[in-house]
Nucleic acid binder design. Structure first.
Lengths: 68, 68
DNA sequence: TGTTTTTATACCCGTTATGGTATAATTTAT
DNA sequence: ATAAATTATACCATAACGGGTATAAAAACA
């Protein structure tokens, strides 16, 4: 389904972090981290990259996944 | 450098489309397509995906490129 | 079971992305 | 070279993202 939100949540948990901790380290608001993990589609690119950067990742074009 | 903007521009040109044509097919504004190809960092995720979808792509987490 | 921690939802509000339009700059073609 | 097509830049208006806060729900734990 939504690989991005799942990716963030899995990475965060595998590092033993809470949402507030992730938001603090990424320099974003807590609300944003929650929207991200909830699969909100209208997020801003730079904010998402702030979070992914903590994991050594960033947003880039990938082949479309099958929709659900 | 900015793989996303380069990706869009290359795909668009390889399909022989102009920016207005791409915007029209993607259902976004022309200004957005221009911002995208210019490497604007604060774009909205869903809008970028509207464009990438035309090429069978979408945004997803990828390993970070060297910033240089 | 009850308590604590974590996550989800709801609200207000400042900031800003987007779309549209117009104009300038650049590229391409003749 | 000039002319046409394409792309870049600038401005305005509206919608909505993100931050903050408070509360509710859920999960984790003893």
């Amino acid at each position: 389904m939504n690989t991005l939100s799942e990716f963030v949540r899995n990475r965060r948990k595998s590092l033993g972090m809470t949402q507030p901790e992730l938001a603090e380290k990424a320099g974003t608001g807590l609300r944003f981290v929650r929207d991200l993990e909830q699969g909100k589609k209208t997020l801003r690119l730079d904010k998402v990259n702030q979070v992914l950067g903590l994991f050594g990742y960033e947003l880039g074009p990938v082949r479309q996944e099958r929709e659900e």
